[in-house]
């Protein structure tokens, strides 16, 4: 067991956001936290490395409570990829090297530089290593953020909507990469998501949040149309497509597609 969350609660200005959250995660498991906007997915993620201090319950990383660890000690075990990164005039290499910060005492060692080099090769970012990050595209930047988290050599990887602003190709690339790292290095990963189908495809486990509590959770295969309908308030059908579940929303008042016109007419 790498991550253990027990009775976690969080309130913001005495307004309860999360209550009674319990789950645990072992090596090589990827958990998708799902639920409607504003339900507390990001807050839950941030409680796990004490960016938000839980107001009740506890989060254990390797049986040590995060509230008793220093930020630096947490950062050695838990890496966090925020939904958005600010860009400064820093090269890709130095940005990723920043991920070694929790391990660096005084001076960057040769080992630190070698780890960064290896991570960049693994994520196929070598060609970009001396580019300033303010010249990168959204997809490239997200890969750099993931690389920075990986060189922290974490046991737990937290990702806040890792694919929210990416095109289809980049979504698949990033999630494939994350899933591969989780499998190969036997770490645990938690990501918040909106796209159920992407979650179904890449995660091992899911957790639905509703009104700040766990609505349902389990292995990906156990997700049902009833759960989704109850959480989002929208009827869906779960089809099976090439052996994978595929969620399709069922709404009757969707406008019919426009009558087909020829390309000449559109132009």
């Amino acid at each position: 067991m790498i991550l253990d969350v027990r009775g976690l609660a969080f309130s913001y200005n005495s307004h309860p956001v999360l209550e009674g959250i319990e789950f645990s995660l072992g090596a090589g498991e990827l958990l998708a936290i799902l639920g409607p906007n504003g339900v507390g997915k990001t807050t839950l993620l941030k409680c796990m490395n004490a960016i938000h201090k839980p107001t009740g319950g506890a989060v254990y990383v390797h049986w040590r409570s995060v509230l008793e660890l220093s930020p630096r000690d947490i950062a050695r075990d838990v890496a966090y990829v925020a939904q958005r990164s600010e860009v400064a005039r820093l090269t890709v290499f130095d940005t990723v090297l920043m991920g070694r910060k929790p391990h660096i005492r005084w001076k960057v060692s040769d080992t630190d530089v070698k780890i960064v080099d290896a991570a960049l090769s693994r994520l196929h970012l070598n060609a970009l290593r001396l580019r300033y990050i303010d010249t990168l595209s959204g997809g490239e930047l997200q890969k750099v953020s993931v690389a920075r988290a990986l060189v922290q050599e974490p046991q737990i990887l937290l990702l806040d909507e890792p694919t929210s602003s990416l095109d289809l190709k980049n979504q698949i690339d990033i999630l494939t990469m994350i899933r591969r790292v989780v499998d190969e290095h036997q770490i645990a990963a938690v990501m918040t998501m909106h796209d159920l189908n992407t979650a179904l495809r890449f995660a091992h486990k899911f957790l639905f949040l509703k009104s700040g509590r766990i609505h349902s959770a389990g292995a990906i295969q156990e997700m049902t149309a009833e759960m989704i309908e109850s959480v989002y308030g929208l009827p869906v059908a779960v089809h099976h497509h090439y052996g994978r579940p595929l969620v399709v929303p069922l709404c009757e008042d969707v406008p019919a597609p426009l009558p087909t016109r020829s390309a000449a007419q559109i132009n």
Partner: peptide, 8 residues
Amino acid sequence: ETAKGLGV
């Protein structure tokens, strides 16, 4: 948030 995640 990134900085906090890095232990700053």
